[in-house]
Nucleic acid binder design. Sequence first.
RNA 1: AGCGAGGUGGGGUAGUCUGGAGUGCCCGUCGGGCUCAUAACCCGAAGAUCGGAGGUUCAAAUCCUCCCCUCGCUACCA
Length: 570
Amino acid sequence: MFFISGALYYTANGDSFRYIVTAALPYVNNVPHLGHLISTLLPADVYSRFLKLQGNEVVYICGTDEYGTTTEIAALKQGITPKELTDKYYAIDREAFDRMDCKPDIFSRTSDPAHTRLVQSFYESVKKNGYSYKKNIEQLYCDRDQRFLPDRFVEGTCPHCGFEQAKGDQCESCGKVLRPTELIKPRCTICGTTPHVRKEEHVFFALSKLQDKLYKFVGAQTHWFPSSRNFALSWIKEGLEDIDIQRDIKWGVPIPEAGSTGVFYSWFDAPLGYVTFTEQLGKGSWWHDSKTRLVHFIGKDNIAFHTMFFPGMLIAAGDNYVLPWMVASYEFLNWEGGEKFSKSRGVGLTVPDANQLYPADYWRYYLLSILTEKKDANFSWEDFQAKINTELNDTLGNFLQRTLVFTQNSFGGKVPTPGELTAADKSALLAIDTAFEKVSKHLGDIELKSALEEVMGLARTGNQYLQAEAPWKNKERSNTIIYVSLNVASALSVLLAPFLPSTSEKMRGYLGAKPVRDWEDAKERVKAGRAIGKPEPLFKKIEAKEIAEYRKKYAGVPEAKAEKKKPEKK
RNA sequence: AGCGAGGUGGGGUAGUCUGGAGUGCCCGUCGGGCUCAUAACCCGAAGAUCGGAGGUUCAAAUCCUCCCCUCGCUACCA
């Protein structure tokens, strides 16, 4: 017997679960932007902080996805090696996420030798179980660059409509899907010369053989977000195709086959990073433990890989790998009025830039409050300003402030001893327990936005209570009223911990309490007589002129400007 | 083209699976109150033919059919 939602999680035999929480590995060919944060590291961070506070065994896994054609080409264009490129962005990513207080237990790299070993031995298992085979394929090869060209690096004339700038995967003029070998007069987009067709034996992953197993698996996951589940089911129903898992480039995990010079397709090696990194933490056995709950946080573009491809790989390898218990996929964040964030076009705000502008908790609060698994969210400076000012600052910050200042002025900075509790006092204290239950349930169900709204609801209850009881008027009851208010504030400091860790810590400091260690602390009463610190406002309002300036500054970077900016970073 | 997801007062969002008065939440607007607090806080009000058209039903935001619009995916954008 176990509860799907709520604070307690037990397996059938009464043991508690272990959690492997993963955030999609950021691809290191550019600086991460707020869109990456909102759908991966941030929700994974909140969820894993919550699980840890509850006392669960949890590892939160992340790192950079470094291999692949895109990185190799990006490095080529910048005139540096892939290693130099990924070193640079690994450092940027790591610092940027760290400053956002997103703290995975490990933030490793797929270029780590440990990962190469793991991927190769994983492949051996897949092969041994009959889920890989070799097949001849035709590809375009550029003699001048001495490389096989990925679809996107070939342009030519569309065989359907005659459009001369058709890309290797699709014609932008008539919309037809193409293969690079179909193009008339193909050219290499790197050097402009004409590539020619070469035959090559490639390694394939027999995903089609797993069709039935995957359909059954996904079908059983009724607790997944409908967006992920329906998407996967409809895709599997259409029929899964085997996947070419070989790429003829150098930057990747070498395929351990005699005579092969290829590397693994980056989507074959990247998700295995979760496994490698867990092993690096010394918790590799968790991947083969039925008590483990594997929880993935991803953007919606990754649904296919995390619901079908990766589970398929895990099944194919055998060895009792756990399959995902939850795939939490989030929609995209659009930039001011619907434009897409884009690494390559430099549209939107990067995480390092955001770190320069406001404290981490401002971003964490705002992003979590607009996070959705149903439809794309929209970043707007006005909305950001409004949420920070009216919710964080006015509702939460001011509630704490008025309570603490009253304590200072009327009770010498000590928690007053309460008198007899009235119905209003009791109901305010009861609101703490109610909020605790609701926030716990929402967090357990990975409904982060609802959970955060519930926390803010408690802050509102606090304000309502203070307003109704008016300790500044009812002097004879003010000790009790402030005692109750301080308890609400204390509960808030706990409930906020997964969402706004540094705000929580600050609040605890003002309340004379230690940083939160246990989720149940939310229900603990503050002791009368405890000394309260001198309060400072928790937040500062954002001025209209600030956002006016930032809007201008970050209003999508034109192509030319983006190109110009790059060299100075070298 | 196919597939998936959305369309709910001025903006945002929940409710839709499992039908039961247009119910909730945040912001904005208008009116009032309070003066402990960060020009903050609290209370009240106005404001919606729930994208459109049919259908099922005693009853539809919710179920069925068709249509319109937005976004995404179709295997290298979180």
